[in-house]
Amino acid sequence: MSLLEVRDLKKRFGAVEVLCGVDLTLDAGEVLAVVGDNGAGKSTLIKHISGVYRRDSGDIALGGKAVAFDSPKEARRAGIETVYQDLALADELSVGANIFLGREPVRRWLGLLPVIDRGRILQETQRLIDSIESHIPDGASTVAGLSGGQRQAVAIARALYWDAKVVILDEPTAALAVMERENVIKLSRMLAAKGVGVIYIGHNLVEILEVADRIAVMYRGRIVHVARSEETTQEELIKYMTGYSERRESAA
């Protein structure tokens, strides 16, 4: 049984059919890359999985159970974490506050008022930072002063801490320096090694071939090709991404 299964997912925005029947499976412990040109429907697809959009038709099953999320919060509660392209970290809050944002542990102050348990947040954050070896200075420093790679690490650490089953990484290396890309790839593999199913959205095929176990190619709202990364090449992927193979088939 697959960890996540998407069947015949359809979505239309007005007159435009953005997803026209997407099928996708994701296993625990694998990194599945989803590639495709701009507008192929990658973002729309992951926003359905992460509870941002509601589908018009089709099924999504998590661990064999059909799910329909009304909000990202519900998806998170079910174990689907998304690390967005724009990182979605609050700059003025500390690393720890960001990791725990929306799920702060509370304790009763004087046995009465619920206050944020800052000591516990800091401690757990420090442990988490140490475990991912990502050179984040300390859990109490604000995110504003971190580099792109460090922020990405914070976002991934958040998914790691909350024991996500599925982690969606939306173009995690888009704005990063080369060294930092390596670190994100390492973190993605680390997630998979812990049994998480990782969906990795990306553009850079060299990087995709390095990080992914399997690669799904989207073209105009459909998944047109799925391959194991050791059995495919950049050329083949590009062919499917640009719709070259599809045009040839329809001509034949």
């Binding site: 509660r77 079910a78 174990g79 500390s94 725990f100 799920r103 702060e104 542990p105 509370v106 304790r107 009763r108 348990d117 800052r118 000591g119 516990r120 800091l122 401690q123 757990e124 420090q126 300390d138 859990g139 109490a140 801490y161 909350w162 024991d163």
Partner: peptide, 23 residues
Amino acid sequence: MATHDANLPLGRGMKAPAATRTR
């Protein structure tokens, strides 16, 4: 599901690490 229940008062009595003080 998260194994860390956000509402568990686990941290009670824990000393804040040095980083809190510098903060």
